[in-house]
Amino acid sequence: MTELTSAASTAPIYVYEKPVRLWHSLNALLIVVLSVTGYLIADPLASLKGEASEHFLMGYIRFVHFSAGYLLSIALLFRLYWAYAGNEHARQIFLPPLLKTHYWQGVFHEVLWYLFLVKEPRKYIGHNPLAILAMHFVFVWGVLFMIVTGFALYGEGAGQGRWQHTFFSSWVLPLFGSSQSLHSWHHLFMWLIICFVLVHIYVALREDRLSRQSMLSTIVTGWRTFKDDRPVDDESGA
């Protein structure tokens, strides 16, 4: 890492391994599916005519939502394992270096960059410090919140004695006071994640054009390329 930093070259670096990239695309797909189906569960489509036995629309929508929720959870579990098994960049969004001054200086610089107050952003191999902050606190914890509340809601229907109820509903429901409040929080956090996605896509597009390293191509290939040959500012070991 330190050698790389001092090498200060424009040579591409392999940052995001295949499982990380796969997780990213899967999450993108699942979040769209979960948001659409989740919204339709709270606010269903126009009523269907005819006999109840002829339709199963809500049933299918809920099935898709639950399946996608399971996939999201399993994917997160796998990703947590990969944070341990993968390279150093794989744990960046799970373990932000919150106690390091250099990191916070980086955050501050990035904020100034977005406020048009500095001419140039810093150069990073991994995520920039502000991105790490947002991904950790909004995305990772947001998704974890959705998984926990989601399983708690699922456990309500699954019933007592099922593991979803034992491990989630049994303590989450009393925590939120009522099922109604739990539904509201689950719904609100969907909007939080939608806001995150909007900002995430915008800054990725913007950084791709204006930052000093590659963005969109890195999502696909995992290789980071650089636009200048000055040293990178990554927190060593971050």
Binding site: L45, K49, A52, H55, L57, M58, G59, I61
Partner: peptide
């Protein structure tokens, strides 16, 4: 059953 079918008042 009407909920599952998507039949609402």
């Amino acid at each position: 059953p009407h909920f599952d079918a998507g039949q609402f008042v």
